[in-house]
C-alpha cells in the first residue's frame, strides 16, 4: 500500500492556519465587498447613483474567493482521504490528526463557499445606492 511508504507526518508540516484559510477568505471577501459598496456610495455617487462598477468588482472578488476556497477545500479533502482510514479520525496517530484537520478544513471550505455565495447573490438584486 502506498501509505505504508508514505513519509511520516511531522508536526511542522501541520498547522491550525490551514484550517482557517477558507473562513478568512470569506471574511476578506465580505469586508472588501462591504467597504467597496460603502465607500462607492458614500464618496462617489449620490444616493440614487448606480452601483454598476461595484457589482462587477464584487463579482470579481467572488471568483477569486471561490477559487481560493476551492483550492483550500480540495487540499483538505485530499488530506481527509489520506491513507485508508475512515471517519471519525479519532486515533492517537499523526495520520488521523492529519486526516481530521483535512476533514475540518474541507467542511469549513464548504461553509465558507456557501457564505461567499450568499453575499455575492446580493449584487443580483441591487442596482443603485438606495
Amino acid at each position: 500500500m502506498k501509505t505504508s511508504a508514505a513519509p511520516r507526518l511531522p508536526e511542522r508540516h501541520e498547522s491550525l492556519w490551514r484550517l482557517i484559510v477558507s473562513p478568512t477568505v470569506w471574511a476578506v471577501h465580505f469586508m472588501l465587498s462591504y467597504i467597496t459598496a460603502a465607500v462607492w456610495c458614500a464618496k462617489y455617487v449620490p444616493r440614487s447613483g448606480t452601483l454598476e462598477p461595484v457589482r462587477w468588482l464584487i463579482a470579481g472578488y467572488t471568483l477569486v474567493a471561490l477559487g481560493a476556497i476551492a483550492w483550500n477545500g480540495w487540499d483538505g479533502y485530499r488530506r481527509h482521504r489520506h491513507g485508508a482510514s475512515e471517519l471519525p479520525h479519532d486515533a492517537d496517530t499523526p495520520g488521523d490528526r492529519h486526516r481530521f484537520l483535512g476533514f475540518a478544513t474541507f467542511l469549513l471550505a464548504l461553509l465558507s463557499a456557501v457564505a461567499v455565495a450568499f453575499a455575492a447573490l446580493a449584487v443580483l438584486y441591487f442596482h443603485d445606492c438606495r
Binding site: F118, L121, A122, F126, R130
Partner: peptide
C-alpha cells in the same frame, strides 16, 4: 428565503 428577502427589499427602500 434570502433570495426572497433580497427581492422585496429594493421596493421598500425606493423613494
Amino acid at each position: 428565503l434570502l433570495l426572497h428577502g433580497f427581492r422585496i427589499l429594493p421596493p421598500l427602500l425606493a423613494p
